[in-house]
Each structure stands twice: as structure tokens, then as C-alpha cells.
Amino acid sequence: MSALLEVKNLKTYFVSKKRVVPAVDGVDITIRKGETVGLVGESGCGKSMTSLSIIGLVPSPGGKIVDGQILLDGVNLVDLSENNMCKVRGRDIAMIFQEPMTSLNPVLTVGEQIIEVIMYHLQLNRSDATQKAINLLKMVGFPRADKIIKEYPHRLSGGMRQRVMIAMAMSCNPKLLIADEPTTALDVTIQAQVLELMKELSRKFETSILLVTHDLGVVSELAERVIVMYAGQVVEEALVDDIFDKPYHPYTEGLIDSVPLIEGAITRLNSIPGNVPSPEEMPKGCRFAPRCRVAFDRCYSEEPTLQSISTSRFVRCFLYEEGEVNGCSRL
């Protein structure tokens, strides 16, 4: 399978008069056609900013992609003009946001909002677009779709709004769907509905999904590959089975051990001490070193690079310098 999206050495910085804040600092991501990739990390690690960079919605002024390439089917999105980017956005790349209430327009009916997207990108007339909108809403599980298109967002529940967002995102059969914390605002039973729906859609339309989330459970249900970010950088990348079975990077390990399991059995949670460093005061050397359980002298002076362990596995840590896989033992 060929790569659909290739992000190479992406750097998104926030520049003000006083200082430069590197929110995303050299990130590489590859997503193949039909593949679901999870991008995980804690708040402030740059995962949302990475996804906003890909879809070209970096908050401006202030934020700017200063370096790197974002190749979608070989076209570099960074070089596109705003006009051309508008044509890509929504048609080739669509996005679902965390809070479905704030991302829908409260004064337009949900039908109006979906129809607008379809008419703009697919050049359909109004009645065809309306018909398509109804079909889309049926597809995401509204039995009375012809009534729903006349409803305003505030009349719908959180799960229904998120399904409207998914319908809107899927309206032009995008090649890539970016889902930024799609289920974080939802209850577990509703979350289960939305996750099932996303799984089904990606299978049916071969849509690639970049799933941005802090919830490792959601990632392990939906994603095939996982990329772990910390402080603006990728620290580990692996297949989903491998990473939960045997995490390599001490941060990934800490992250997994911090999660209480629904199966129980752990008596005490292994927490990671301290907080994520803010981008303006990055520690010298390895960015995780001050919180790391196994940090040694070298970690405080030198910055590790992303090492390839196998074809599908990368880790940024000195413990694996020569491709050794023995350094970090699980507690």
C-alpha cells in the first residue's frame, strides 16, 4: 500500500515579539490508504497542533509552519494558496472536532450546514444536495433523517451532534479524516456508538483516519498504528499490539501504567512525576529526562534522535541506541 499522507519534519512555531514557541518540532507521520493511525499524548504535547497543521488551520497570526512538508498524494499542502487549500479542506481532508456544539453553527439548521459543504465541493444543485444530506444522515444512523435536517444543533444531544459532524465530514468521501478527540465529550455508551460508526465507515469507504486522542483505550480499539508524542516530538511509533504489549519509551510505559484498568488487579498506579514542560522552557537534552525513571547523565546533555528498531517501530531514547531492546524493563 502506498502512502496517502506523508508529513516530513513538520515544524509549527508560534512566534511573538518576545519569543518563539515550538509547538510542533520536527514531526514525521506516514498514513497509508485505509489505515487508522492513533496520535496520542497528554495535553500540550502538540498533537492537536500537528493535526491543525495538516488541515491548514494553524491559528494565525502567531502560528506558522516554519519548516517541513505535508504531502497528500504527492501534493505539498504547505505550498498551496489559501484558495486551493479551501478546495482540499472538506473534500480530500475532513476533520471532526472534540466539542460538537462549538463546531456547529447554532443559527443554521444541521441540514443547511451539510448542504453547504456538498454544494461547494461537489457542485450539486440544491435538491440533489439535500437528498445527499438525507442519505448521509441515514448512513450515520438517524432513522428520521428527513426531519433531522430541519433541526437546529441545540435540539440534538451530544452523540447526535457528533454523528452530524461525522456525516458532514464524510459528505465528500474524503481520503483522510482527522478526528481530534472525537469521543472525549461523550458518555461511554454514546462513545461506543460513535466508535462503531467510525470503524464501519473507514472499512466501507477505505478512508484513512488520523485519530488524535489522549485516551489509550480508544486508540487500542480503533487504530492499527500508534504514534506517541511528547513535548512537540514523536517519541515512539509502533503497531498497536506491540506498543501496549511492550512499550519501549519510558514515557509510553508511564502513560500506559497510569491508566487504571477496567479489569482491575493493579493495586497502585504508576504515575509519571511532574508535568509536561511548557514549550517555552524546554529542558536541555532529552525532553522527557526530568520526569524519566531511568534517565542517566547523557539524557541531560544530548538530545536523542528517533531510532528505527524494526520496519514498523521507532523510538526516541538513548536506551535503544544500537538497536538494543533490553534497556527498559517493564515494572
Partner: peptide, 14 residues
């Protein structure tokens, strides 16, 4: 239903 809806981290148990 509530318990079965919780996403689980270990894929093997799934």
C-alpha cells in the same frame, strides 16, 4: 452495557 462500552487498552482481551 456500560461496562462493555468502555474501550480497553489491551488488545488481546478484546
Amino acid at each position: 452495557a456500560l461496562l462493555s462500552a468502555v474501550p480497553m487498552i489491551r488488545k488481546k482481551d478484546l
